[in-house]
């Protein structure tokens, strides 16, 4: 399998993979010119799993665009409970120009869960006209949950578009009250907001069957 290997994506090829609940992902991808890569790393262990099973998840994704006009998309979603923890590292390097990279990573941490995101984005001197975006959004559902975010941007080319943003917050109290005012109990209101937060990552999955299955499984919990 691709895990723990170096994968070469040939010129013009498209590579898409959804990693669902793998304890660790270790992915090294070299992209040739005009290739497309779309990766989803989804860590949504069952909520029912109880306390004792401490789970530590490690995701490492290295992607280097070695040819021009490549596109890279990385989506990550972690929804952790109890003492679970996740570290997700993305290392995206644009060695040559005209490429795009888009990253959206969301962490939802309940109970004592911990999350750590390291987002390493490098745009080399030759990588002019690169467009790179990295977004990290996190929800803390308990006072004991903890999130660390470490974006690292190294940009050596001058004609590029690069953005990054990180935010960590809690559920919107006014939205919770609004839902309660309509008779929805607080627990369910929280779950509706969490599901909404997750859906825009899940909506980017190309495989329609899998996408629908994952989204429907969220709603069926309600």
């Amino acid at each position: 399998m691709v895990n723990d290997q170096i994968v070469n994506i040939k010129s013009g090829e498209t590579f898409e993979r959804v990693f669902l609940n793998e304890p660790s992902v270790n992915l090294r991808i070299i992209q040739e010119a005009g290739s497309h890569v779309k990766i989803h790393v989804l860590n949504m262990p069952s909520k029912q799993a109880e306390g004792s099973n401490l789970q530590t998840i490690s995701n490492k994704i290295f992607i280097t665009q070695t040819g021009e006009n490549c596109s890279t998309e990385i989506y990550a979603l972690a929804y952790l409970h109890n003492d679970e923890s996740v570290t997700t590292e993305t290392h995206v390097a644009h060695a040559v120009g005209g490429g795009t990279s888009n990253q959206l990573l969301k962490f939802i941490l309940a109970d004592h869960a911990r999350g750590h995101f390291i987002g390493d984005l490098k745009i080399e001197q030759d990588a002019q006209k690169t467009e790179a975006h990295q977004t990290n959004r996190n929800l803390l559902l308990s006072e004991d949950a903890e999130m660390r975010t470490q974006p690292q941007l190294e940009i050596y080319a001058d004609d590029v578009k690069a953005t990054h943003g990180a935010s960590t917050g809690q559920l919107d109290e006014s939205a919770l009250f609004y839902m309660q005012q309509r008779g929805i109990d607080k627990q369910k209101a929280r779950q509706l907001l969490v599901n909404a937060f997750m859906k825009d990552v899940l909506n980017t999955i190309s495989d329609e069957t899998l996408r629908e299955k994952l989204i429907n499984s969220l709603d069926s919990d309600l």
């Binding site: 939205a175 509706l192 909404a196």
Partner: peptide, 18 residues
Amino acid sequence: VEIPGVSMTNFMRAALNA
């Protein structure tokens, strides 16, 4: 209040069934 990502259908059904 605006609630992005929660559809009127899901919201209204949850409220009505509660």
